[in-house]
């Protein structure tokens, strides 16, 4: 898994079937996609990884939902909220990715959360759809948040994943578009390649044998 779009929404949430999304993703240069509420499978040479979204729930509920979702080898996404919530969520074993950072305020993801994310290997999802769909002040706000995250990434080196949150094949973007859009918030080609490969790394780390001392 070298290049992965970290989040897409196939039918019924979106208007494109999972097979069609896999074919289009293959044409656009990806070798895997993370589909929300789907099944782990392979279409047209593309690995489809099932993702589970956990949002707007208290930490206690997230712990129980993560336990249930972990059994079926899913990627677990948790929506970021305030700073206290993010610190609590990062401590939960089984959470893979935090998303929705552009919707939070500047204090939600600070240097402490960044350090905790780096230590526990939890990735931060940078959603490119607001950069594509928003205009004016709201896009500037998103860019500012992402620039802030990238500054922390340079210091603490927590994993970052890039995604389109596409509900349709018309919202998917090519690997070339990913790298072009990522330059807007200070990513270079190496950073983009690393970010697109992070889903594979998360999956391989999870399945790897660990030595317990």
């Amino acid at each position: 898994m070298n290049f992965t779009d970290a989040c897409v929404f196939p039918y019924p949430t979106g208007d494109s079937s999972i097979r069609r999304m896999a074919i289009e993703a293959c044409d656009l240069g990806f070798d895997s996609i993370v589909a929300i509420n789907s099944t782990n499978c392979k279409y047209a040479g593309i690995s489809v990884i099932n993702g589970v979204f956990l949002n707007d729930t208290p930490v206690q509920d997230i712990i129980s939902k993560v336990k249930r979702a972990k059994v079926t080898d899913n990627l677990i996404f948790v929506k970021t909220r305030d700073n206290r919530f993010n610190r609590a969520v990062i401590g939960i074993r089984g959470v893979h990715i935090l998303y929705g950072l552009h919707l939070t305020d500047g204090y939600a993801f600070d240097h402490v959360v960044a350090k905790m994310a780096a230590d526990s290997g939890i990735a931060i999802d940078l959603n490119l759809s607001p950069l594509i769909n928003e205009r004016g002040q709201s896009r500037q706000h998103v860019l500012n948040r992402y620039i802030d995250v990238v500054n922390l990434y340079r210091r603490f080196e927590f994993p970052i994943v890039l995604s389109t949150h596409a509900h349709s094949v018309l919202e998917l973007r090519s690997v070339r578009d990913f790298s072009a859009l990522a330059t807007l918030f200070g990513f270079d080609i190496q950073d983009v390649e690393k970010a697109l490969g992070n889903i594979g790394r998360i999956k391989s780390l999870e399945s790897a044998v660990r030595e317990i001392k």
């Binding site: 349709s168 578009d177 859009l181 807007l184």
Partner: peptide, 23 residues
């Protein structure tokens, strides 16, 4: 070309129809 390509990837509709432009 780079600036144009980034802007082209931000086009989502044209005359009321949903489109995408792939460079």
């Amino acid at each position: 070309e780079r600036e144009l390509a980034i802007a082209l990837s931000c086009i989502t509709s044209c005359s009321g129809q949903r489109i995408v432009l792939h460079t």
